[in-house]
């Protein structure tokens, strides 16, 4: 478990360094994820320890997001007049894009399988 966490932390350091040194417009933790993914693809196998550490972290994502998420209820004045455009955009946008993706992928799969 700890060995897996160490690997993860080292890849984060690597990603953060790459972000700092190159000024790439992608954050260090995301670069760390991409580097770790590339490393796993290259090795074509994964240690149990890394798998355990990763699923332990991912299983607790809701807890880790709670401190940031609860801030939604403390925005106050900041959001006056913004809720209507925001909620309309999230609701209508999500419904439309889900629907379009389903229609598109259904057509693509049907085309592939008819060949």
């Amino acid at each position: 478990m700890i060995r897996g966490l160490t690997t993860i932390m080292l890849f984060w350091v690597l990603g953060e360094s790459l972000h700092f040194l190159t000024g790439l417009a992608v954050s260090g933790n995301v670069l760390g994820m991409l580097l770790l993914f590339a490393w796993l693809l290259f090795r074509q196998r994964i240690d149990l320890e890394l798998e355990q550490a990763s699923s332990a972290l991912i299983a607790q994502l809701s807890l880790l997001l709670l401190p940031g998420g609860v801030g939604l209820f403390f925005l106050g004045e900041r959001m006056s007049g913004q809720w209507l455009p925001l909620l309309t955009a999230v609701i209508v946008g999500s419904l439309l894009s889900t629907f379009i993706c389903l229609v598109l992928m259904k057509a693509l799969v049907a085309r592939k399988e008819s060949r």
């Binding site: 984060w12 990603g15 990763s54 699923s55 972290l57 994502l61 997001l65 401190p67 940031g68």
Partner: peptide, 30 residues
């Protein structure tokens, strides 16, 4: 909220490694 958030950073800090960890399910489902 400000006091709360600065203390709760101990928890949200772990979002960093949790992001890196997303590489693992991506690899497994790839």
């Amino acid at each position: 909220y400000a006091t709360y958030y600065s203390g709760a950073k101990w928890i949200s800090f772990l979002l960093g490694p949790a992001t890196v960890a997303l590489a693992v399910p991506l690899f497994l489902q790839f």
